[in-house]
Design a protein around this nucleic acid. Structure first.
Lengths: 116, 116
DNA sequence: GAAACTAGTTACCTTTATGAAACTACCTTT
DNA sequence: AAAGGTAGTTTCATAAAGGTAACTAGTTTC
Protein backbone atom coordinates (compact mmCIF):
# COMPACT_ATOMS: atom_id res chain seq x y z
CA UNK A 1 0.00 0.00 0.00
CA UNK A 2 1.22 3.43 -0.88
CA UNK A 3 2.15 5.70 1.98
CA UNK A 4 -0.11 8.70 2.36
CA UNK A 5 1.03 12.18 3.20
CA UNK A 6 -0.18 12.21 6.77
CA UNK A 7 -0.23 15.77 7.98
CA UNK A 8 -0.24 15.38 11.71
CA UNK A 9 0.36 19.06 12.18
CA UNK A 10 -2.50 20.71 14.04
CA UNK A 11 -4.55 23.41 12.38
CA UNK A 12 -3.02 26.00 14.67
CA UNK A 13 0.45 25.04 13.56
CA UNK A 14 -0.59 24.98 9.93
CA UNK A 15 -1.89 28.53 10.31
CA UNK A 16 1.53 29.57 11.59
CA UNK A 17 3.23 28.00 8.63
CA UNK A 18 0.83 29.73 6.26
CA UNK A 19 1.63 32.98 8.02
CA UNK A 20 5.30 32.50 7.22
CA UNK A 21 4.40 31.83 3.61
CA UNK A 22 2.30 34.99 3.29
CA UNK A 23 4.98 37.07 4.93
CA UNK A 24 7.76 35.76 2.75
CA UNK A 25 5.82 36.45 -0.42
CA UNK A 26 5.77 40.11 0.54
CA UNK A 27 9.17 40.46 2.17
CA UNK A 28 11.47 38.22 0.15
CA UNK A 29 14.44 39.62 -1.70
CA UNK A 30 17.75 41.08 -0.80
CA UNK A 31 16.63 44.66 -0.24
CA UNK A 32 13.09 44.89 1.16
CA UNK A 33 13.79 44.60 4.88
CA UNK A 34 16.84 46.79 4.39
CA UNK A 35 14.71 49.54 2.85
CA UNK A 36 11.91 49.09 5.38
CA UNK A 37 14.39 49.20 8.26
CA UNK A 38 15.86 52.41 6.91
CA UNK A 39 12.43 54.00 6.54
CA UNK A 40 11.55 52.89 10.05
CA UNK A 41 14.51 54.86 11.38
CA UNK A 42 14.03 58.01 9.31
CA UNK A 43 10.28 58.54 8.95
CA UNK A 44 10.37 60.46 5.67
CA UNK A 45 12.98 60.09 2.99
CA UNK A 46 13.38 61.19 -0.58
CA UNK A 47 14.43 58.87 -3.37
CA UNK A 48 17.98 60.15 -3.47
CA UNK A 49 18.27 59.95 0.32
CA UNK A 50 17.41 56.27 0.18
CA UNK A 51 19.77 55.73 -2.72
CA UNK A 52 22.64 57.23 -0.76
CA UNK A 53 21.73 55.66 2.57
CA UNK A 54 21.26 52.11 1.33
CA UNK A 55 24.71 50.89 0.61
CA UNK A 56 25.12 49.16 -2.73
CA UNK A 57 21.63 49.43 -4.16
CA UNK A 58 21.15 50.56 -7.76
CA UNK A 59 18.52 53.14 -8.72
CA UNK A 60 16.65 50.57 -10.75
CA UNK A 61 16.39 48.15 -7.83
CA UNK A 62 15.37 50.84 -5.39
CA UNK A 63 12.70 52.05 -7.76
CA UNK A 64 11.36 48.56 -8.37
CA UNK A 65 11.32 47.58 -4.70
CA UNK A 66 9.58 50.80 -3.70
CA UNK A 67 6.90 50.26 -6.35
CA UNK A 68 6.47 46.71 -5.14
CA UNK A 69 6.01 47.81 -1.56
CA UNK A 70 3.72 50.64 -2.59
CA UNK A 71 1.47 48.09 -4.30
CA UNK A 72 1.52 45.99 -1.15
CA UNK A 73 0.71 49.10 0.86
CA UNK A 74 3.76 49.05 3.07
CA UNK A 75 5.12 52.31 1.70
CA UNK A 76 3.47 55.58 0.69
CA UNK A 77 4.87 57.74 -2.10
CA UNK A 78 4.11 61.44 -2.12
CA UNK A 79 5.21 63.95 -4.71
CA UNK A 80 6.07 67.21 -2.98
CA UNK A 81 5.64 70.36 -5.01
CA UNK A 82 9.02 71.89 -4.27
CA UNK A 83 11.40 73.24 -6.88
CA UNK A 84 12.85 70.98 -8.03
CA UNK A 85 10.05 68.60 -7.16
CA UNK A 86 10.89 65.90 -4.66
CA UNK A 87 9.27 62.62 -3.74
CA UNK A 88 8.78 61.51 -0.19
CA UNK A 89 8.66 57.92 0.87
CA UNK A 90 7.35 56.83 4.22
CA UNK A 91 5.92 53.75 5.87
CA UNK A 92 2.18 53.24 6.02
CA UNK A 93 0.66 51.82 9.18
CA UNK A 94 0.98 48.36 7.62
CA UNK A 95 4.65 49.14 7.03
CA UNK A 96 5.12 50.28 10.61
CA UNK A 97 3.49 47.09 11.81
CA UNK A 98 6.68 45.36 10.69
CA UNK A 99 8.60 46.95 13.54
CA UNK A 100 8.67 43.80 15.69
CA UNK A 101 9.65 41.61 12.76
CA UNK A 102 12.48 43.92 11.83
CA UNK A 103 13.66 44.19 15.42
CA UNK A 104 13.76 40.42 15.86
CA UNK A 105 15.45 39.77 12.53
CA UNK A 106 18.03 42.42 13.26
CA UNK A 107 18.69 41.14 16.79
CA UNK A 108 19.07 37.60 15.54
CA UNK A 109 21.40 38.68 12.74
CA UNK A 110 23.69 40.50 15.15
CA UNK A 111 23.77 37.60 17.62
CA UNK A 112 24.32 35.03 14.89
CA UNK A 113 27.19 36.99 13.48
CA UNK A 114 28.77 37.44 16.92
CA UNK A 115 28.63 33.71 17.65
CA UNK A 116 30.58 32.83 14.54
CA UNK B 1 29.97 71.34 -5.58
CA UNK B 2 29.08 67.70 -5.66
CA UNK B 3 26.69 66.41 -3.02
CA UNK B 4 28.22 63.94 -0.62
CA UNK B 5 26.57 60.81 0.69
CA UNK B 6 25.89 62.08 4.19
CA UNK B 7 25.09 59.14 6.40
CA UNK B 8 23.38 60.75 9.33
CA UNK B 9 22.34 57.39 10.66
CA UNK B 10 23.80 56.73 14.10
CA UNK B 11 26.15 53.83 14.66
CA UNK B 12 23.51 52.04 16.68
CA UNK B 13 21.08 52.23 13.81
CA UNK B 14 23.71 51.15 11.34
CA UNK B 15 24.37 48.08 13.49
CA UNK B 16 20.69 47.22 13.26
CA UNK B 17 20.74 47.51 9.50
CA UNK B 18 23.83 45.29 9.33
CA UNK B 19 22.00 42.79 11.50
CA UNK B 20 19.21 42.66 8.94
CA UNK B 21 21.77 42.10 6.20
CA UNK B 22 23.47 39.22 8.04
CA UNK B 23 20.17 37.59 8.82
CA UNK B 24 18.88 37.83 5.27
CA UNK B 25 22.03 36.27 3.87
CA UNK B 26 21.28 33.18 5.93
CA UNK B 27 17.49 33.13 5.76
CA UNK B 28 16.62 34.34 2.29
CA UNK B 29 14.81 32.12 -0.17
CA UNK B 30 11.36 30.76 -0.54
CA UNK B 31 11.72 27.71 1.71
CA UNK B 32 14.12 28.26 4.61
CA UNK B 33 11.77 29.76 7.17
CA UNK B 34 9.12 27.29 6.09
CA UNK B 35 11.47 24.37 6.81
CA UNK B 36 12.74 25.90 10.02
CA UNK B 37 9.22 26.57 11.21
CA UNK B 38 8.26 22.99 10.53
CA UNK B 39 11.28 21.67 12.41
CA UNK B 40 10.51 24.00 15.28
CA UNK B 41 7.10 22.35 15.62
CA UNK B 42 8.21 18.75 15.26
CA UNK B 43 11.61 18.44 16.94
CA UNK B 44 12.88 15.51 14.90
CA UNK B 45 11.91 14.70 11.36
CA UNK B 46 13.11 12.40 8.64
CA UNK B 47 13.74 13.52 5.09
CA UNK B 48 10.55 12.00 3.75
CA UNK B 49 8.53 13.47 6.63
CA UNK B 50 9.71 16.93 5.66
CA UNK B 51 9.09 16.26 2.00
CA UNK B 52 5.49 15.29 2.73
CA UNK B 53 4.86 17.96 5.31
CA UNK B 54 6.20 20.89 3.32
CA UNK B 55 3.66 21.49 0.67
CA UNK B 56 5.05 21.95 -2.82
CA UNK B 57 8.75 21.49 -2.21
CA UNK B 58 10.76 19.21 -4.49
CA UNK B 59 13.26 16.69 -3.14
CA UNK B 60 16.09 18.57 -4.79
CA UNK B 61 15.17 21.84 -3.13
CA UNK B 62 14.66 20.26 0.26
CA UNK B 63 17.99 18.53 0.03
CA UNK B 64 19.78 21.70 -1.03
CA UNK B 65 18.19 23.88 1.62
CA UNK B 66 18.92 21.37 4.37
CA UNK B 67 22.57 21.17 3.31
CA UNK B 68 22.71 24.96 3.29
CA UNK B 69 21.33 25.19 6.78
CA UNK B 70 23.55 22.40 8.01
CA UNK B 71 26.57 24.39 6.82
CA UNK B 72 25.21 27.44 8.62
CA UNK B 73 24.71 25.30 11.71
CA UNK B 74 20.99 25.84 12.03
CA UNK B 75 20.15 22.20 11.40
CA UNK B 76 21.76 18.93 12.47
CA UNK B 77 21.64 15.82 10.28
CA UNK B 78 21.95 12.41 11.87
CA UNK B 79 21.95 9.08 10.10
CA UNK B 80 20.07 6.53 12.15
CA UNK B 81 21.07 2.92 11.76
CA UNK B 82 17.62 1.48 11.24
CA UNK B 83 16.56 -0.81 8.42
CA UNK B 84 16.09 0.80 6.04
CA UNK B 85 18.37 3.53 7.32
CA UNK B 86 16.73 6.83 8.05
CA UNK B 87 18.06 10.33 8.48
CA UNK B 88 16.91 12.62 11.23
CA UNK B 89 16.89 16.35 10.94
CA UNK B 90 16.56 18.64 13.91
CA UNK B 91 17.34 22.20 14.86
CA UNK B 92 20.58 23.08 16.60
CA UNK B 93 20.57 25.65 19.39
CA UNK B 94 21.33 28.29 16.78
CA UNK B 95 18.34 27.05 14.83
CA UNK B 96 16.12 27.19 17.89
CA UNK B 97 17.29 30.74 18.55
CA UNK B 98 15.18 31.68 15.53
CA UNK B 99 12.01 31.01 17.47
CA UNK B 100 11.22 34.68 18.10
CA UNK B 101 11.95 35.64 14.51
CA UNK B 102 9.69 32.91 13.20
CA UNK B 103 6.93 33.78 15.64
CA UNK B 104 6.98 37.44 14.65
CA UNK B 105 7.15 36.76 10.93
CA UNK B 106 4.30 34.30 11.21
CA UNK B 107 2.16 36.64 13.31
CA UNK B 108 2.73 39.48 10.88
CA UNK B 109 1.93 37.30 7.89
CA UNK B 110 -1.39 36.23 9.39
CA UNK B 111 -2.37 39.79 10.36
CA UNK B 112 -1.33 41.17 7.00
CA UNK B 113 -3.37 38.60 5.16
CA UNK B 114 -6.39 39.21 7.37
CA UNK B 115 -6.29 42.95 6.74
CA UNK B 116 -6.44 42.52 3.01
C1' DG C 1 10.20 -11.08 -8.02
C1' DA C 2 7.39 -6.95 -8.35
C1' DA C 3 6.33 -2.93 -5.97
C1' DA C 4 7.19 0.28 -2.55
C1' DC C 5 10.03 2.10 0.82
C1' DT C 6 14.53 4.70 2.42
C1' DA C 7 17.46 9.23 0.97
C1' DG C 8 18.82 11.46 -1.93
C1' DT C 9 21.42 13.01 -6.93
C1' DT C 10 21.64 14.41 -11.78
C1' DA C 11 20.39 16.65 -15.98
C1' DC C 12 17.89 19.93 -18.18
C1' DC C 13 15.21 23.92 -18.37
C1' DT C 14 12.63 28.33 -17.12
C1' DT C 15 11.96 32.18 -14.39
C1' DT C 16 13.21 35.66 -11.29
C1' DA C 17 16.55 38.59 -9.27
C1' DT C 18 20.12 41.56 -9.56
C1' DG C 19 23.63 44.65 -11.59
C1' DA C 20 26.14 48.42 -14.49
C1' DA C 21 25.77 52.05 -17.35
C1' DA C 22 23.61 55.12 -20.14
C1' DC C 23 19.75 58.00 -20.82
C1' DT C 24 15.35 61.14 -20.22
C1' DA C 25 13.42 65.26 -18.60
C1' DC C 26 13.07 69.12 -16.12
C1' DC C 27 14.94 72.62 -12.65
C1' DT C 28 18.63 75.49 -10.33
C1' DT C 29 22.88 77.40 -9.41
C1' DT C 30 27.30 79.31 -10.96
C1' DA D 1 25.76 77.67 -21.17
C1' DA D 2 27.91 74.28 -18.21
C1' DA D 3 27.49 71.60 -14.21
C1' DG D 4 24.85 69.59 -10.88
C1' DG D 5 20.58 68.66 -8.71
C1' DT D 6 15.71 66.20 -8.81
C1' DA D 7 13.48 61.17 -9.90
C1' DG D 8 13.49 57.97 -12.13
C1' DT D 9 13.54 54.52 -16.90
C1' DT D 10 15.80 51.74 -20.47
C1' DT D 11 18.92 48.50 -22.25
C1' DC D 12 21.71 44.77 -21.94
C1' DA D 13 23.68 41.28 -19.41
C1' DT D 14 24.68 37.69 -15.88
C1' DA D 15 23.70 35.14 -11.63
C1' DA D 16 20.79 32.83 -8.61
C1' DA D 17 16.66 30.44 -7.62
C1' DG D 18 13.44 27.16 -8.52
C1' DG D 19 10.95 23.30 -11.00
C1' DT D 20 10.26 18.55 -13.46
C1' DA D 21 11.39 14.25 -14.19
C1' DA D 22 14.28 10.54 -14.35
C1' DC D 23 17.70 7.93 -11.99
C1' DT D 24 20.83 5.50 -8.27
C1' DA D 25 21.23 2.28 -4.68
C1' DG D 26 20.06 -0.44 -1.11
C1' DT D 27 15.97 -2.64 1.90
C1' DT D 28 11.68 -4.65 2.71
C1' DT D 29 7.18 -6.19 2.26
C1' DC D 30 3.45 -8.56 -0.50
Amino acid sequence: MKKQAVHNTSNLCRAQILGIKSAMEILSGKWKLYILGTLLLHDKMRFMDLLREIDGIAAKMLSKELQDMEINQLVRRTVVDTKPLTVQYELTSAGRSLQQVITEVSKWGIEYRDNL
